[in-house]
Each structure stands twice: as structure tokens, then as C-alpha cells.
Amino acid sequence: MTDPFIILGVDETATKKEIMLAVADALRDGRHNAKTIAAAQKMLFNPLTRAQAVFRYRVDFGPYAVSAPQVPVDSENRRPQLVRLIISP
């Protein structure tokens, strides 16, 4: 995993302050080692490597976007109303 945005859990618009906070969170969570987190932070603090990272790792999924079908869900019954079936081959 080398995507600094995923390592730190920030998006491409993250400010320096947000990145600093994300670094602290990432170190606390322990999902990645300190070296990886430091490298991600360094990458996002440098304008050139940050632009590189945006170009390389961020994908605009807009052209692929498909909305979930709008099916009315009974707001009073949060759960689907299913009847238990007796199945036989």
C-alpha cells in the first residue's frame, strides 16, 4: 500500500492541518508502521510529490457513477418483510 491518501485516510483536498491530524490518528490506529506514515506525510507536504500522488492514485469515478435504484423502503419497518420459506429441492 503506497497511496498516501489511503494510508492517512485523507482526500486530495486535505489541508496541512488535516494531514497532521490524520498522521496522529494513523500512528494511534497502528494500521501502518511509522515509517510508512512518515513517508505518506512527506509525500503530501511536497507540492510536486503530492500532485504526483493525486495523478497516480486518485481516480475520478464520476464517469462510471451509477446511482442505486431508488426503491421505497418502508420507513416504519426498517427490516424487509420476508416470510420464512420451506424449501425443498
Binding site: 486530495e12 483536498t13 489541508t15 496541512k16 507540492p47 510536486l48 503530492r50 500532485a51 493525486v54 475520478d60
Partner: peptide, 16 residues
């Protein structure tokens, strides 16, 4: 399109 993010306030200065 990359400059859109780089132009965000406080994100970065000296965009390449």
C-alpha cells in the same frame, strides 16, 4: 485538473 485541488486554500503553495 490537478490544479483544482492544488488551488484549494491551504492545500499547497508553489504548485508545480
Amino acid at each position: 485538473s490537478l490544479h483544482v485541488h492544488q488551488d484549494t486554500p491551504n492545500v499547497s503553495s508553489n504548485a508545480p
